[in-house]
Each structure stands twice: as structure tokens, then as C-alpha cells.
Design a protein around this nucleic acid. Structure first.
Length: 106
DNA sequence: CTAATGACGTAGA
DNA sequence: ATCTACGCCATTA
């Protein structure tokens, strides 16, 4: 059981039409303050994986763009819009509305 | 074992 | 809101 598998487990729990921040996923994965691990874990995940990686965004409500993704960041935005999530012209997401409220945390 | 990497978060200005 | 700087520590070569 790698630490990443725990993160993947959390990401799979994100319901349709909602998003979670890296910090939130890290917290749910019992890894407080290890938000970087979440991002690094998703980096290992393949775009065609069964993990809803596109529902994970940063605390600013934006999609993390990085050259290592080779455009998968654009794909993420498309997937989010496909789920009914509205993005601001700047690519921001209203965490106030779409943030996944964990059942475990209350 | 060491060195480098990394889709982030928080605090201060 | 924007920018700068530091911390976090598993994973990989």
C-alpha cells in the first residue's frame, strides 16, 4: 500500500460535478500539509486512468498548468465543463459552489 | 546510501 | 489581487 494509492483512493471518492483541492485530498488521505504529494501522485496517473484526476484542482480554484502535462491541463478544463462545472473566463472554479464536502470530515 | 524532483499551501509585504 | 520565499517528504535515478 503505497502512499499514492491512498491518494488515488480519495480522488476516486470525489463525486460527479464536484471538485476537491490538493490540500483537501491530502487531508482526507491522512496527509495534512502534503498537498504536493497529491499533485505528484496525479502526475504519475495516466490520463486514461480510472481515477477522476480532473476533479482535483489547487486551492486557488484554478487548474494547475505545467509543461509536463503537455496539454492535459486543457483536457482537464474540458472534462470539468462536461460535468456542468462553470469556469470563470480566467479558468477559475467557484470552490464555494463546487467544492466537494467530505462526508468523513463533516 | 545521496541528490534531484515535484499537478501545492501558507504567510508576509 | 499579485508576488516572493519557504516547508512539506515520498518517489525516482
Amino acid at each position: 500500500m503505497s502512499a499514492y494509492e491512498t491518494i488515488y483512493n480519495i480522488v476516486r471518492q470525489i463525486p460527479y460535478g464536484q471538485v476537491a483541492t490538493y490540500g483537501q485530498v491530502a487531508d482526507l488521505a491522512n496527509l495534512p500539509g502534503r498537498a504536493r504529494f497529491v499533485g505528484y501522485a496525479l502526475y504519475r496517473v495516466a490520463p486514461d486512468s480510472d481515477i477522476p484526476w480532473h476533479r482535483v484542482i489547487n486551492a486557488k480554484g484554478e487548474i494547475s498548468e505545467s509543461p509536463v502535462r503537455y496539454g492535459s491541463d486543457y483536457l482537464q478544463r474540458s472534462l470539468l465543463e462536461a460535468e456542468g462545472i462553470q469556469l470563470s473566463p480566467q479558468g477559475k472554479i467557484s470552490l464555494r459552489k463546487y467544492r466537494w464536502r467530505s462526508e468523513l470530515k463533516g
